[in-house]
Simulated scan of single mutants.
Amino acid sequence: MLTADDIKAAHARIAGHVRRTPTLALGPETFGLGLPLAMKLEYLQVTGTFKARGAFNTLLGAAMPAAGVCAASGGNHGIAVAHAAATLGIRARIFVPEISSPAKIARIRETGAELVVGGARYFDALAACEAYAAESGAYSVHAYNAFPTMAGQGTVGLEWEEDAVGGLDTVLVAVGGGGLISGIARWFDGRVKVVGVEPEGSRALAAALAAGGPVDVDVNSVAADSLGARNVLEHVYAVASRHVDSVVLVPDEAILEAQRRLWLHLRVAAEPGGAAALAALVAGRYRPAPGERVGVLACGANVDLAGLAALV
Rank of each mutant, 00 (worst) to 15 (best):
A10T: 07
A10Y: 06
A10I: 04
H11P: 00
H11Y: 14
A12C: 07
A12H: 14
R13V: 09
R13N: 09
R13D: 06
I14G: 00
I14Y: 01
A15M: 02
A15C: 04
A15D: 09
A15Q: 07
G16T: 01
G16A: 00
H17W: 14
H17E: 09
V18G: 07
V18Y: 07
R19H: 12
R19K: 11
R20N: 10
R20F: 05
R20A: 11
T21W: 05
P22Q: 03
T23W: 00
T23K: 01
L24W: 12
L24F: 10
L24K: 06
L24T: 10
L24Q: 12
L26Y: 09
L26F: 10
G27S: 15
P28L: 12
P28E: 13
P28T: 13
E29R: 11
E29Y: 02
F31W: 04
G32L: 06
G32M: 08
L33T: 05
G34Q: 01
L35A: 03
P36A: 02
P36D: 02
L37G: 05
A38I: 03
A38N: 13
M39I: 15
K40L: 03
K40S: 03
K40P: 06
K40T: 06
E42A: 09
E42D: 15
E42T: 09
Y43Q: 12
Y43I: 11
